[in-house]
Design a binder for these strands. Structure first.
Lengths: 230, 230
DNA sequence: TCGCCCAAGATTGCATACAATTTATAAGGT
DNA sequence: ACCTTATAAATTGTATGCAATCTTGGGCGA
């Protein structure tokens, strides 16, 4: 029963923000399951706050797509369907390439440097997947950071917000668990090639590698098994 | 002094929803101006409700991008800058073509029919712009409905929500006020051509006409004056 | 005269009580 | 047996009071 830390650090946070965070975590780790109703009073008493901050947190989570509001029934954890996965992928496939294209014309030197460092770290971790059991999840977080950095470099705050909200809700399911070494290496080559395209001053190249990057990842989750020689 | 209608229709609305609506209208019609602070107590007393529904409405409007929350200072009406216009246009230019592409493969017959009716209505109004002073604003609302219908036909709810939120905030500035007859006619031809492309079963065609449609509109707002023969 | 500090005012943040609405339940009639 | 209706329980919606926090203005000292 994880109670809210009264003052986990010197940073003062509002109760609403803490409740928001806790609920999001609980959705991600499965404490709240799909289609489960979150009643204001229950959450409030569990987290030792009043209903007010809970109400506000729930509304925020609804607008972010984590919950859906059922009038006079409460907020329900959204169930992730195949359609949701399709919708998010369709959006990602146009938004992330856009971000890379925009970023490639105006990225700062320091930002590009951090991307190179992230790529290098992921590459070295990739070669340790057989011996280091932690490396897959480490790659996942570095990968997330890589994409996030790239998106922020697009200099389009709305785009960044959209991707944050749209993609984050789907992150539950995506990690590198079912990537074999070959696919991992291709993924890492994509990262490197995006940086090469940016360095070469070719937004179109960068954009298309990103599309390939996303489509390759998608193909792993939805195996089509269409071998031409078959 | 527009007070909140107690029961404007038989539909029962929550105070939060009514406050939300009123504030949005007031931003659109200029009652609240850019950078103006909206204090919970002021709005509450003006609209004869308590602070609670005002708080919730303000938070929603912040998450929708109409206001920005300044900690302990209140909610401020966002000022529309050139950068905001650029950001929104960059997003529209990938999202609306995506919507059209998706819609063209799965649009229903009845939905297609309504689009044709809307296009026809706009076309006839276009030929009346010299005599009918109302026609420009009528075209604007029909145009909005045309785009909305097309977007809903994409069968991607997230995409529809994104476009609704992203585009609506910028609608304040865009109408057909500075379209001359030639540009209006081109805009109408675009609508018609999108429908032709859908009917012909060519998502790529439809998608590219939409891009042209948006870029042509953009060119009018940001005149470049680059005549090749000059 | 400039900078720092303290206090008062203003504003949001939170808690609690109450109202309104809906849903679930059970009883009664057909 | 099933549908209707009324009643009660549960839940959200709203109002209000108080606490916490920040901003602002003035006074004090260097």
């Amino acid at each position: 029963m994880d109670a809210i830390p009264a003052n986990s650090s010197s940073v003062v946070q509002t109760a609403t923000a803490r409740v928001h965070e806790v609920i999001k975590k609980r959705i991600l780790n499965g404490h709240y399951q799909a289609n489960e109703y979150l009643r204001e009073t229950s959450v409030a008493s569990e987290l030792n706050v009043s209903r007010t901050p809970v109400r506000e947190a729930l509304r925020e989570l609804v607008s972010e797509g984590w919950l859906e509001a059922i009038p006079h029934r409460g907020a329900r954890v959204v169930a992730w369907t195949a359609k949701d996965a399709r919708e998010v992928f369709e959006l990602r496939l146009v938004l992330e390439p856009l971000a890379v294209r925009l970023a490639s014309t105006q990225i700062s030197k320091s930002c590009f440097k951090s991307l190179e460092i992230l790529a290098t770290q992921m590459e070295s971790l990739t070669e340790q997947v057989d011996t280091n059991t932690e490396s897959r999840s480490d790659i996942a977080s570095l990968n997330h950071e890589f994409h996030r950095t790239l998106i922020l470099a697009s200099n389009n705050q709305r785009l960044a917000n959209l991707l944050e909200n749209v993609v984050r809700t789907s992150v539950i399911h995506r990690n590198f668990g079912n990537y074999d070494l070959a696919n991992l290496r291709r993924s890492m080559r994509h990262h490197r090639e995006i940086l090469e395209a940016i360095a070469a001053g070719s937004p179109e190249w960068a954009e298309n590698v990103m599309r390939a990057h996303l489509l390759a990842a998608q193909a792993l989750h939805v195996p089509h098994t269409n071998t031409p020689s078959g």
